[in-house]
Design a protein around this nucleic acid. Structure first.
Length: 909
RNA sequence: GCCCGAGUGGCGGAAUGGUAGACGCGAUGGACUCAAAAUCCAUUGUCCCUUAAAGACGUGCCGGUUCGAUCCCGGCCUCGGGCACCA
């Protein structure tokens, strides 16, 4: 029988679906293993071959773990709320839900063809009310909680209220609390809630009509849509992620993630240890204290001015009447700049003098207070002490405005640039003179604390997450307003479902404001919706128990599945989803809803698959096309050509003429009778005609070939271009594998006993596969498989004793063909739950080892020795070897180095 | 500017201190065939050379450690990714 992948693949896909082969439930008798993919946003373009890369890798691992006896949870779902569906709705008037459902169905079809072992009964969709009920529920819990720094965890807000009432907390005394109005109490609590409403500087995107989180903005443009983004002060719902900054940083240590990903998170969280210090300022005849933050207190003697952020509240208070006009002009100027302009112009230095002066708390010196956009309101205290000699930004500012530059490190040259390094000896610095910089930092910190001038402070760059979006296609907030005070919707009334609206067009107000009867108990509901990351922050918990109507996840299910053992996804979520999820998880952990404080134990970033575009070269002014190798002789224009009419970089001339009317009468200048196209690696995109659809590969080669090929392409974590060049190789391998069982129409598997040689081939492969799969080195496993199959083909081995284990070994990679052969071998059950063959090192061992013998590192000859031979015996054999003397010739053997089983090296003198 | 990662044949890549180039693609030659496809066999890093043997060179560049370095250390170059006025 021929290897007919089409009938085999559809047959087993149907079998798996109808037998619910991959359905799992908690089973205390088996160890659990949770393998998770980052669920996709179902876009209208469908899947291209890059998407399944990670899914295939995780599916192979899941299938491998099942063979190893684990109870594997391997679910899939859709991150279905989001901007593209809504933008499409704006253009066409079609409800985003319709678009989303259509796209999901298409995705599901494509996924099903690849033979994934998902338990589809656990599917989740973030836009499903039964799902977003729990997103809303978590928000209510966050609204109803505060972060207690003493316990370093989130606690119910009722505990804080109890403290206000009895002993008071921070600046709120029991008397003040009692005297406060309902509105005032709400405002006070907002300062503590984990989910809170507050005014902050936000990324406002006019093009999308909504605010965006920091990770949704790149280079001053929105990640979705690429519209410009500006800074604006607005009142928004926020999540107090910053309260978790320390814990998010510290527990990175125990995670099995790549160093680069951990590093990215560390940078994003941005811990910096410094000092908060108070400078008294004089504004005309008024005095007021200003707190600054610095990591370099040691440079206090080099302070020559101070700078405030333009958005800082201090600006109004520290501007003298004489400077008022100038300052206001500057603030106006800053406001008109978009974020993008700000980034583009980081080199231009701007600023204005406030008219005030600050008093250096250590030296008593009087320094001017300036205002400049290079100081950020959102970090530290929004005010700094400037030390131009030792900070490049202060230096540039001082140069521009002619402010003094005072070096305080011995021998440094600040005539051209500042000296930022933390090294050298202090000078011009009173009590710090003569100290090394590192010592001076500590000494100065102690000094400041001892003299009551300030205190040590750790700051984080990580900001609170802005949680509201002025959009339609997202989770509604379970919040309503009474007398301007926000109140939570009753938990029993969840889900609060998204209302219908008649038009999705942006009008400047939030779309939900146009919904009819958008009220709760007669009061208006919040009209913002939640951002994309809301639904994706706890979806992995929901998979554990997705039909539960009573809880996000039941205690039993959570205690069984606990956390994700292996998470595979792209690195683009490093600072978004992976921070929010960890935060969300820690919050639920604090309140005791779940039992693990980190969600993803091991994480692998699969590389991107880029497109490989092809080009033709048209001679300028003609309709003549010249082959790539000859193009240097002509003046040509490079034109993208559809990769579907190119094979191995050779253009199909007839197909090209038919491709576009303007090419119908094209002429060609060939080399060696063929038209060779140029190529380049680019992002996979429609406009470059380089998109490869997995369905096409499934049609021509089959899903098993696609799976093998994507893994054979190279290391999982590496980005690589898609190139079908090598796909015939893995396809050939599958055909060869098939032919071990079939000779044309005849089934040739025998029950003959396997030889030692054949057992060795099998056990070497088992050992290799076991080791490589654990390291996700799938490409080398496949290589080992090819070698084994070649060896067996050459030996004419079709023995059940060898082939049956081989089928099991292949099943994670190419499940369809494995299932078919498993069935043909007479098994009633599925290969999915077969046992991974036991590795026997004795079979795999080499009897004799061939040692290469080197003199001073150069290979000279080889000798065969039993593997068990002691190094001394090997050495004796080498010295006795007939070839040795001729190489030694007048030199003496200094020593013989024997690396057991590997190599022998003779050192000569 | 700062922080990570990577540089190996015509191509994708293998080997993390021990015979560099596994495995696959492509290419060349051959077998089978009327022919094609499919399949199988052989060769395939570079140089010297009619060929073989033998040799020399060879993992971005320069240096170091080692009997021995693609691998470890120091410096540089190139490419990719992340962050970017974070005081």
């Amino acid at each position: 029988m021929e290897y007919d992948f089409k009938s085999i693949e559809s047959k087993w896909q149907e079998y798996w679906a109808s037998h619910k082969t991959f359905k799992v439930k908690e089973d205390a008798s088996k160890p659990k293993y949770y393998v998770l993919d980052m669920f996709p946003y179902p876009s209208g373009a469908g899947l291209h071959v890059g998407h399944p890369l990670g899914y295939i890798a995780s599916d192979i691992y899941s299938r491998y773990k099942r063979l190893k006896g684990f109870n594997v949870l391997h679910p899939m779902g859709y991150d279905a709320f989001g901007l593209p569906a809504e933008q499409y709705a704006i253009q066409t008037g079609q409800h985003p839900e319709v678009t989303t459902t259509t796209n999901i169905n298409r995705y599901r079809q494509q996924l099903d063809r690849i033979g994934f072992s998902y338990d589809w009964e656990r599917e989740v969709r973030t836009c499903d009310p039964e799902f977003y009920k729990w997103t809303q529920w978590a928000f209510l819990k966050m609204f109803d909680s505060w972060y207690d720094p003493a316990q370093d965890k989130a606690r119910p807000i009722s505990e804080l209220i109890a403290r206000f009432e009895t002993e008071g907390y921070e600046d709120i005394t029991p008397a003040a609390w009692k005297a406060a109005s309902e509105k005032e109490k709400s405002d006070i609590l907002m300062r503590y809630r984990i989910a809170y409403q507050g005014e902050t500087s936000v990324n406002w995107c006019e093009g999308l009509g909504t605010v965006l989180a920091n990770d949704e903005v790149k280079d001053g443009l929105s990640v979705r849509g690429g519209f410009p983004v500006e800074q604006k002060k607005m009142t928004q719902w926020q999540l107090r992620v910053s309260a978790y900054a320390g814990r998010l940083l510290d527990s990175l240590e125990k995670l099995d993630w790549t160093d680069s990903l951990k590093e990215m998170q560390r940078n994003w969280i941005g811990r910096s240890e410094g000092t908060e210090m108070v400078f008294n300022t004089i504004c005309g005849d008024r005095e007021m204290p200003v707190t600054i933050f610095t990591t370099r207190v040691d440079t206090i003697y080099g302070v020559t001015f101070m700078v405030l952020a333009p958005e800082s509240d201090l600006v109004g208070q520290l501007t003298t009447p004489e400077q008022k006009e100038e300052v206001e002009n500057y603030l106006k100027y800053v406001k008109t700049k978009t974020e993008r302009e700000r980034i583009a112009e980081t080199k231009t230095v701007t600023g204005v003098f406030s008219g005030s002066y600050g008093i250096n708390p250590v030296t008593g010196e009087k320094v001017p207070v300036w205002i400049s956009e290079y100081v950020l309101a959102g970090y530290g205290t929004g005010a700094i002490m400037a030390v131009p000699a030792h900070d490049s930004r202060d230096y540039a500012f001082a140069r521009k405005f002619g402010l003094p530059i005072v070096p305080i490190i011995e021998g440094c040259d600040v005539s051209e640039e500042s000296f930022d390094a933390k090294e050298g000896k202090m000078c011009n610095s009173g009590f710090l003179n003569g100290l090394d910089v590192k010592q001076a930092i500590e000494t100065a910190k102690d000094y400041v604390e001892a003299h009551g001038l300030g205190r040590r402070k750790t700051n984080y760059r990580l900001r609170d997450a802005i949680f509201s979006r002025q959009r339609y296609w997202g989770e509604p907030f379970p919040i309503y307003y009474k007398d301007g005070i926000p109140y939570p919707v009753d938990e029993k009334d969840l889900p609060l479902t998204l209302p219908e609206i008649d038009s999705y067009k942006p009008t400047g107000e939030a779309p939900l404001a146009r919904a009819k009867d958008w009220t709760y108990k007669g009061y208006p509901l919040e009209t913002s919706t939640m951002p994309g990351f809301a639904g994706s922050s706890a979806y992995y918990l929901r998979y554990m128990d997705n039909h539960n109507g009573e809880a996000l996840v039941s205690r039993d299910a959570d205690e069984y599945w606990r956390d994700v053992d292996l998470y595979i996804g792209g690195t683009e979520h490093a600072t978004g989803h992976l921070i929010y999820s960890r935060f969300w998880n820690k919050f639920l952990f604090d309140l005791g809803y779940i039992c693990e404080d980190e969600p993803f134990r091991k994480l692998i970033n699969q590389g991107m698959i880029q497109g490989r575009s092809n080009f033709v070269y048209r001679i300028v002014g003609t309709n003549k096309f010249v082959s790539c190798g000859l193009k240097k002789d002509y003046d040509t224009t490079e034109i993208h050509v559809d990769i579907n009419i190119v094979r191995n970089d050779k253009l199909d001339l007839e197909a090209f003429k038919a491709w576009r009317p303007e090419f119908a009468d094209a002429e060609f200048i060939l080399e060696n009778g063929e038209y060779v196209c140029g190529w380049a690696v680019e992002k996979m995109s429609k406009s470059m005609f380089n998109v490869v659809n997995p369905d096409v590969i499934c049609d021509t080669y089959g899903a098993d070939t696609l799976r093998l090929y994507e893994m054979f392409l190279g290391p999982l974590e590496q980005s690589k271009p898609w190139d079908t060049k090598g796909i015939d190789g893995v396809n050939r391998f599958l055909k060869k594998f098939w032919r071990l069982f079939w000779d044309r129409e005849e089934w040739i598997v025998t029950d003959e006993k396997a030889s030692a040689e054949e057992l060795k081939v099998l056990h070497k492969l088992i050992g290799k596969e076991q080791a490589d799969i654990e390291n996700f080195s799938y490409n080398t496993t496949i290589s080992a498989f090819m070698i084994a199959v070649n060896d067996l083909t050459a030996a004419g081995c079709s023995k059940r004793e060898i082939l049956e284990p081989l089928v099991v070994l292949l099943s994670p990679f190419a499940p369809h063909i494995a299932e078919e052969l498993w069935h043909r071998l007479g098994h009633e059950d599925t290969v999915t739950y077969a046992r991974f063959p036991e590795f026997n090192a004795a079979f795999a061992a080499e009897d004799n080892v061939t040692y290469p013998v080197q003199f001073n590192g150069r290979m000279r000859f080889t000798i065969d020795m039993p593997k068990s031979a002691a190094p001394a015996d090997v050495e004796a054999a080498v010295r006795a070897h007939e070839q040795t003397p001729k190489y030694v010739e007048g030199k003496t053997i200094v020593k013989v180095i024997v690396v057991p089983g590997r190599i022998i090296n003779i050192v000569l003198k």
